[in-house]
């Protein structure tokens, strides 16, 4: 097990190297000069050249890359050109908000998607089945940012306890306070703020989970051992929950992992709509400002988190189904 994890971690290295080169080329070959954007419309040519020299943008590309790489290997992702703050700081202060949004979105998606999928599969052909399938299809076809806009104007404006924007306190912190001090207010305040953006993002994922759970349940329910169990006279509900669900969840877990990764950076527009202080917004603004160090560091961090999540998925796979071996 440990050997497997180590091997997977080692395999990440060339991948990350490749990503860093790709991103480096992508941003440095694109039109747009970070120094000009920093200086604004009133810059003189002399100032532009002076700052380019200060930041080392006048050096050949490969030298700039190796400079960046050698710093990155020592854990230094550089300093934002525009803000003058270390990229590690900028990323870490937003990581909490992004993870929180992703986690709550996943929870919503899972909490609604899996039961819906199960019911749909068990009551195949019923009204519930049709309803959940239609819901799933519409959900997967709706762009999250548009849903967000609609939720803002049609829900948040009418429901007093739903705020319009922003984040208020960390949910993780709120949970901790709930456990240690038995106070629920901080957690609630956090949840109140995260709810709408999480629904906007989670809906698409819920749809995917519902569909997958349903089809995967149907497949398992058709298998011989389930039929045998039923024939043996085991209670129907027990069969469904204990035996079938366990096996049916395997593909669902995989998709949760992949979707979780996509959520980390994919919620860019939704983050903007709700003024959520996440990593996606940071990176997209950096792309617009050609703030190279942030783009480089941010994408790299996303890739690392994504790879780690996938690793976690593969491990949890084994926990659900011990028959899978690592080799």
């Amino acid at each position: 097990m440990i050997r497997y994890i180590v091997r997977r971690l080692v395999q990440m290295i060339p991948l990350l190297l490749g990503i860093s080169i790709l991103v480096f080329l992508l941003v440095h070959l694109s039109p747009g000069d970070p120094v000009r954007m920093l200086l604004g419309e009133e810059a003189t040519e002399e100032d532009v050249e002076r700052l380019n020299a200060i930041y080392g943008f006048d050096l050949p590309l490969h030298i700039q890359y190796f400079r960046w790489l050698s710093n990155a290997l020592r854990g230094n992702l550089g300093v934002s050109i525009r803000q003058g703050i270390s990229v590690t700081t900028l990323l870490s202060e937003r990581l909490g908000a992004t993870l929180e949004l992703a986690v709550v979105s996943v929870l919503i998606a899972v909490a609604l998607g899996i039961p819906l999928g199960i019911i749909a599969a068990v009551r195949r052909g019923s009204l519930v089945d049709y309803f959940s399938m239609i819901l799933a299809l519409v959900g997967v076809s709706t762009p999250g940012f548009w849903l967000g806009l609609m939720l803002l104007t049609h829900v948040a404006l009418k429901v007093d306890f739903l705020p319009m924007f922003g984040r208020d306190g960390s949910i993780f912190g709120g949970l901790w306070i709930l456990i240690t001090q038995l106070r629920v207010d901080v957690l609630l305040e956090g949840l109140r703020h995260v709810l709408l953006p999480a629904v906007s993002i989670g809906t698409g994922m819920m749809a995917i989970i519902t569909r997958l759970t349903r089809s995967s349940m149907l497949e398992v329910l058709g298998k011989d051992y389930i039929r045998t169990a039923k024939a043996k006279g085991l209670n129907n509900q027990v069969v469904v929950l204990k035996h079938a669900l366990r096996n049916a969840l395997l593909p669902v877990i995989t998709i949760i992992g992949i979707q979780f990764g996509a959520m980390l950076g994919g919620a860019v527009v939704t983050e903007t709509v709700f003024a959520w202080p996440g990593v996606g917004r940071l990176i997209v603004n950096a792309i617009r400002q050609r703030d190279f160090p942030i783009i480089q560091g941010g994408v790299l961090m996303m890739a690392v988190v994504f790879a780690l999540v996938n690793l976690a998925v593969d491990i949890s796979y084994a926990l659900v189904n011990p028959r899978i071996r690592y080799d």
Partner: peptide, 21 residues
């Protein structure tokens, strides 16, 4: 491996970066 490289990006972010450049 190249495909893994592309998949390691959140797709919308990659699309934005490509169009930006």
């Amino acid at each position: 491996r190249i495909m893994d490289l592309i998949l390691a990006f959140p797709s919308i972010l990659l699309a934005i970066a490509i169009v930006a450049s």
